[in-house]
Simulated scan of single mutants.
Amino acid sequence: MAVTDDGPDGKSPIGTVPIGRMATTEDVANVAEFLAGESSSFLPGEDLLMTGRSSN
């Protein structure tokens, strides 16, 4: 299965992402590295949404 930026309706969601791009594997790896490191020690049990946009 090919990975695309298209949403379920076949349209690109890029226009709805304030950052203006989809996440890269490097973006996800950076978050994983942060969570695995000492810098995240004050974030016990948190859910981080990597949406590239503000949440409501």
Rank of each mutant, 00 (worst) to 15 (best):
P18A: 11
G45T: 08
T4G: 00
A32V: 15
M1V: 13
M22Y: 10
D6C: 06
D27L: 12
L35M: 13
L48R: 04
N56V: 13
L35W: 01
S41I: 00
A2G: 12
M1F: 06
M50T: 11
P8W: 14
D47F: 13
N30T: 04
G20F: 00
D47Q: 08
L49R: 13
D9R: 07
E33M: 09
M1P: 10
G15K: 14
P13C: 06
P13F: 14
D5E: 12
A2E: 12
E38Q: 10
A32T: 14
T4N: 01
V31G: 03
E26I: 07
G10N: 12
E46P: 05
S40C: 07
F42N: 09
T24Y: 03
G15N: 13
R21I: 00
I19S: 02
L43V: 00
G45R: 07
P8F: 10
R53T: 08
I14N: 05
M50L: 15
G37E: 04
V31Y: 09
T51R: 03
V31I: 15
S54D: 07
T4L: 01
R21S: 00
F42W: 14
M50N: 14
G52F: 11
L35Y: 02
P44E: 04
G7A: 15
A36F: 02
M22D: 01
G37T: 03
G20R: 08
A29E: 06
T24F: 03
G15S: 15
E46I: 15
G15Q: 08
A32L: 15
T25H: 10
D47Y: 09
P8Q: 07
G45F: 06
L48V: 15
V17W: 08
L48T: 10
S12L: 05
N30G: 10
D9P: 00
P44C: 01
P13M: 13
E33S: 13
R21W: 00
T4E: 02
G45K: 09
D5W: 01
L48Q: 07
R53V: 06
V17R: 02
P18V: 11
T16A: 14
G37N: 04
M1E: 05
L43D: 00
G7P: 00
N30H: 11
F34T: 05
A36E: 02
S55I: 14
S39T: 09
M22F: 12
A29Q: 08
D27N: 13
D6P: 02
D6A: 12
G20P: 07
E46M: 15
P13W: 12
S40E: 05
G52A: 11
A36N: 03
T25Y: 09
D5K: 05
V3K: 14
G52M: 07
G45M: 08
D9L: 13
S55V: 15
N56C: 02
F34G: 06
M1S: 09
L48A: 04
S55W: 03
G7M: 10
E46R: 15
E26A: 12
K11Y: 12
D5H: 08
E33H: 07
S41Q: 00
A29V: 03
G20Y: 05
N30K: 09
